[in-house]
Amino acid sequence: MLTKEEAVSAGSHFLKTLAYPERASSVVMLPDTAVEFPFGWTVRFDFQEHIETGNPMHAPFSSVVVVPHAGAAHFPPTHLPVADYMELCATGNWPPRKG
C-alpha cells in the first residue's frame, strides 16, 4: 500500500516524465487534494501558468492523476466521475467487458 507522500511523488514523476515532459517545470502537485481509495490514490495537479493567471487556456485538460497501489500512474477516463472509475477498478469491473 502506498502512502500519500509516495502517491504524490509517483504522480509527479508520471506527469513530469511521461505525460508532460515539455512542461515538467510547470507541474504543481496539490497534495492536500489526495484521496485514498481501495484501488489507489487520486491526486490533483495544475500548471504554474494556470495558477498564476487563472486563464483556463493554461489549465490541464484533466487535472487528476490516478496512482494505483499496484501499477502505473495514469489519467482516469474523462467520461466517468473519478470515484466511479476507482470503484470499478477496485471491484475488477474495469475495463468494461464487451458483450
Rank of each mutant, 00 (worst) to 15 (best):
E5K: 02
P38F: 09
V65W: 00
A19P: 02
Y20W: 12
P38D: 13
K98E: 04
R97N: 11
T91L: 13
A83C: 02
E49V: 01
E6K: 04
I51L: 15
S25M: 05
E22A: 09
H13S: 04
S25P: 03
P95W: 02
V64C: 08
S25Y: 07
A7W: 06
V65F: 00
Q48T: 05
F61A: 13
N55C: 09
M86W: 02
N93Y: 05
P81R: 10
G99P: 14
V8Q: 02
R97E: 14
E36Y: 01
L30G: 00
T33E: 06
S63P: 06
T33L: 07
N55L: 06
Y20G: 06
F14L: 11
T17L: 10
M29T: 05
H79S: 12
P76L: 04
S12E: 13
S9N: 10
S63D: 15
I51E: 06
N93E: 15
G92I: 10
P96C: 02
V35I: 15
Y20C: 08
A34T: 02
V35M: 07
N55E: 07
F47V: 07
K4T: 13
T91G: 06
E87I: 06
T78H: 09
M1C: 01
E52P: 00
G54E: 05
S63A: 13
F37R: 02
F45R: 01
H69F: 11
W41K: 00
F61Y: 03
P31Q: 02
F75R: 14
S12A: 13
P31S: 06
P95V: 05
D84M: 15
Y20H: 15
